[in-house]
């Protein structure tokens, strides 16, 4: 287990997440792509904390902040999905040409 290996795995997770967020049409699937990106970010943060930053607690703090971002993303994402569905009956990006109102 080396730092390089960990960072490559984190990059792979981020890359798959980018692919998912850009290619999927369903809102929920797009959110999954976003979560995968944050997953990679958490892994990279903790890897650098453990292997390169000498175990300073600030590294773990960064991972906690990333988890907070993930929770916020999920909550706001689900709320927007519900809100959009109530008004437009849309569950896919293509059904949402107009963002106003």
């Amino acid at each position: 287990m080396t730092l390089e290996g960990l960072l490559v795995v984190a990059a792979a997770l981020f890359g798959v997440g980018v692919y998912g967020a850009l290619s999927q049409q369903t809102f929920v699937m797009i959110m999954m792509g976003l979560e995968l990106m944050i997953n990679g970010a958490i892994l990279a943060a903790v890897a650098l904390w453990a292997m390169s930053a000498g175990g300073t607690p600030k590294g773990q703090l960064l991972a906690v902040v990333a988890m907070t971002v993930m929770a916020v993303e999920a909550a706001v994402g689900f709320a927007l999905i519900v809100g959009v569905y109530r008004v437009r009956k849309a569950d896919m990006t293509e059904k949402l040409k107009r963002l106003r109102g």
Binding site: L3, E4, V8, A10, A11, G15, L22, S23, A53, G55
Partner: peptide, 30 residues
């Protein structure tokens, strides 16, 4: 936009993995 998405994913992976492999991080294990 499947092809563009695959490309973007690959670019993101290559860029980040490149940084991970090339950059010289300090070697201070916890």
């Amino acid at each position: 936009q499947h092809r563009a998405a695959v490309g973007a994913g690959l670019v993101a992976f290559a860029g980040l993995a490149g940084v991970g492999l090339v950059a010289d991080f300090p070697d201070r294990a916890a």
